[in-house]
Write a protein that binds this DNA or RNA. Sequence first.
RNA 1: GUCCCAGUAGCUCAGUGGAUAGAGCAGCGGCCUUCUAAGCCGUCGGUCGGGGGUUCGAAUCCUCCCUGGGACGCCA
Length: 615
Amino acid sequence: MISIREQLAEEIHKAAVSLLNENGLSWPENKQVLVEQPARMEHGDYASNIAMQLASTLRRSPMQIATSLKERLESWPIIAQVDVVAPGFLNFFLDWKKWAQFVEEEKKDRKVTPSQKIVIEHTSINPNKAAHIGHLRNSCIGDTLARLYRRAGYQVEVHNYIDDLGNQVADTVAGLLYYPIKGEYKRFGDFCWDLYAQVNKEEGWLEERREAILQALEEGENNIAWTGLLVAEKILREHLEDMAAFGIDYDLLVWESDILREGFWAAAFEKLRHSPLFVKEETGPYAGCYVLKQPDTEGEGEQNPDKVLVRSNGILTYTAKDIAYHLWKFGLLDKDFRYTQFAANLWRSDQHGEERSFGAADQVLNVIDHRQEYPQRMVKLALQTLGYEKEAANLHHVSYGVVSLSPETAEKLGVDTSDGRSAYPMSGRQGIGVKVSDLLEQMEETVERVRPRKEGISSREIAAAAIRYYLLRFNLTTEIVFDLDRAADLHGNSGVYLMYQHARASKLLEGISEEELNKVPSTFPEDLLEAERALLRHIANWPDTLDQIIKEINIPLLTGYAYQLASLFSSFYNAAPVLKADEEVKAFRLWLVGKTKSILKEALELIGIPAPTEM
RNA sequence: GUCCCAGUAGCUCAGUGGAUAGAGCAGCGGCCUUCUAAGCCGUCGGUCGGGGGUUCGAAUCCUCCCUGGGACGCCA
């Protein structure tokens, strides 16, 4: 199915080619017909700059070219009017009734695209303390990506990687065993949050104990390893509970200890051994280590760009395990995990249990913050080194900026802000951060206090939706400076606003069946109100926008589209009475509200917030 | 030192080759006896960090510089 915009582009292309041919010319290879929805209503519903682009080829003025194209395009049935505007734009105005009929016809022969399998890894929080809002941004991004790809027809599998053998778990275990603290905590993760920060404050305390604990964790089957497992699992369950409140879930939990004990690294090592870029260093700072060499650098400069995979003491780095994991993700290892069920609809890797078909992806997406670009590049490099060019190309690091704290919020958490910085980083090590559960609770109280009606949806759901929308609104590269007061603002461009508009639309449509709503009204008003036309043209743009969102992994385009739709609807709602209008107008407006509501609902679903019918 | 990201309204951010640079918040002024005012309408506010270049056209592309953040560890 191709959209109206694409069809229009094709028509323009045809018209332009015939104009070129008449002048003994052919289509210039580097040009392309671009059709866009102009920002301003008076510039039409769609517009093209093709006349300007062809001016040099045709050696005529853009205005002349636009005028001849206009004559050739006016007969296209869905177009009501074509304007030629200086310096040479072609502006198209749609015949909305014909558009509506056309779209209704198109819906019938929509075909399902054959699906590729895509593995999306997100969340992957160290299971040694409570989650904070930086982690939540990761999970919201990952979850919305999963929703987008599912919508696009992919077979999506969501992984959450559990690093149960890392330094962080080791530190919390060290604290639990040897560093008594006391205090009242609602949850284990909150207790560990403080404990982890405390032991990190003690000069030299961890360094004495960490290595022994790490080794015991890796070996397994001993007191420390079991303690580590208990800690990781307990905290993981709290993380999953946190995320569930935001509508986030997973298909598979991959445990680092399983990667190690199933011998994934040994298998990966066997493959890497034959690569000239994977070498054991005999001299220099990395003497005794297995490293992955950078291909096109000569080791110039102060820093060594190579990546250690196996330390001189034989212990693997995180990146080594990640490489093994990614070979498995693409189905390139002859090994597999066993699987056991962790919760309803959620499986975990295991050393015992049943066989299941996880992994073997066509595409892999890793949602990880931008500070880890280097190790992610190393994983990709390892795939290339092994000759898996296709898989390397299909491995995508979805990079995003971290969440830091505004000075006001940092100060509330007891951070010394006397240095006057514009933002303060969160730090688990220092115990600085806004915990997900605390934020949700606080926001719930705010909602409970300010909401005018208590119907349809709980204050907790509203709070979660507001937070989720807030974290998804920004460009991925933007480092969010989180401010408690700003996030608690539920007016204007907020998740609450979107849900409210959906509830309003739902109320107007109460008691009307889906079928009735989909029927194109027999008459359209002679002159549409500004608010009606604005809403229509935004609705018409949804299929193209959705394509673009998925192609560019452009989440703010999704939230922005939804906000604008809600905003246009709200203006329409105020400008045009629906239920009180004359019969014909009423039928048209109800149809328009129906269209708005169904697209708003789709968008809300992708953003991952509820579409309440009442609130 | 090398590389990456950012610098747009008082604040937080959109906008990556097109038409008069847009939102929200904050400020000011209006609108509830009419479908949900968590709303709507109006208004104030910008030499798009700076210089140079490419183009019919630059916030957007190239180049140099300034400022802030990050990566480069036998951490993850």
